[in-house]
Design a protein around this nucleic acid. Sequence first.
DNA 1: GTAGCCTTGAAG
DNA 2: CTTCAAGGCTAC
Length: 461
Amino acid sequence: MECRLDAGLEELCPVCGDKVSGYHYGLLTCESCKGFFKRTVQNNKKYICAEKQDCRIDQIQRKRCPFCRFQKCLHVGMRLEAVRADRMRGGRNKFGPMYKRDRALKQQRKALIQAGGFRAESCPHLVSSTHQRELSFPGGLHLVPILHSNDCISYQPPSLSSFLPSNSLVATQYQCIPFSNWTIKSEHTKNCMSSHGSAAGTSSDKMYSRPFSPHGPRMPQLVMEFLHCEPDELQLQDKIAVRLLQEQTGWEEQGNPSTLSLMCLMADQTLFSIVEWARTSIFFKKLKVSDQMKLLHSCWSDLLLLDGISRQVLYGREGRLLLVTGQEMELSEIALHAGPILASLVQRGQELVEKLHILKVDRQEFACIKFLILFNPEVKHLEEHQFVESVQEQVEGALLEYTLCTSSHLLGRFSHLLLCLSELRSLSTLVEDYLHCKHLSGEVPCNNLLMEMLHAKCSLA
DNA sequence: GTAGCCTTGAAG
DNA sequence: CTTCAAGGCTAC
């Protein structure tokens, strides 16, 4: 049937550029990369790169370096957990609804492109800037529709509501962003924030337990536990979109808010998600509420900053700021409109992003760093100080073990990460100071979690 | 080991 | 019933 050959199949495989044969393990890929991914994960293959672990993977050379090919599979977002541990054939898995949404979006976009007079050409790797349309952003800035490797154009009407992602936009972003989860689903992770979406609990879910690490380095158990506590980016975007939409009612009465106010609202919503993450995370949920409060009050700005920075490192593009909603802003535009203090903060943030980018810090390491930040034994008056200290030690141990497995530079990588962490902490202090000033001058919204945290920290100091 | 084609089976 | 993304098979 004709509709079987939907827009998606005209695309090229994000791993090697070959012809796409359908959705495989989370996204549209070719038949060979599907098979390669399956063989690698099912047989627990270990590969070694003979070069510098940055081999080019294309249709011709894809067989030359399986290590880099598998890395690329993970990087573009192929899902380990879609490979079934029990090898059961047929049926559907939890990704079904995601595939459906993505397909609908592509169809919709194709129609838009045709209606807009654009050539509906497939452009999976090189996206011409003429295909971009800027959306007006209150306060004079502009949002650029997200354009990722697997994606051509995302349209939204240029209104305030356009600030928020539509479901389809979210779905696009989801497909473009690699959120490959490592496997292992232990009992306790049921209590952690689900990373398995609304379809969790399908009959295939039981298959996701697989006691092995599927490539190169051995994954320390604790690192896997941390990964399982990570919120699902798709759900996060949806949640924040809904909350911002609710805020919109108030905006209409008061006129358009400033860019700074919008960013604060977004930060506020992100903060909610960070608290939710902590509340449901391994170790943290065992703490007394009073200690939980103390820890969060002490490190909220570090976590908020790390959230933004990790987003840039993992999924951002040069010269752009990727927002939690999945949209992007031009950094040059920000620099143009921001005052000197904000501009220097953004600059320092970018430098940190650059450092982490060069280090190729991955999701696993970011997940560990979050716990390192959260479990800070230096926080005063903790009732369970020893527990916090022991968790800190365990996290350090797990991160060290992981970096030793993934890097040949022995302790170098680990100490680099710790250096970045200290830079992050000093930067977040400056961000707090900046927010405090803006709060005092009445330029940012009051009565929200962000301000509550700010005040709590001021009273701690 | 790779990759194209085949079989399966839950979801719709 | 059909769909289609899983795993399987097998020539290369």
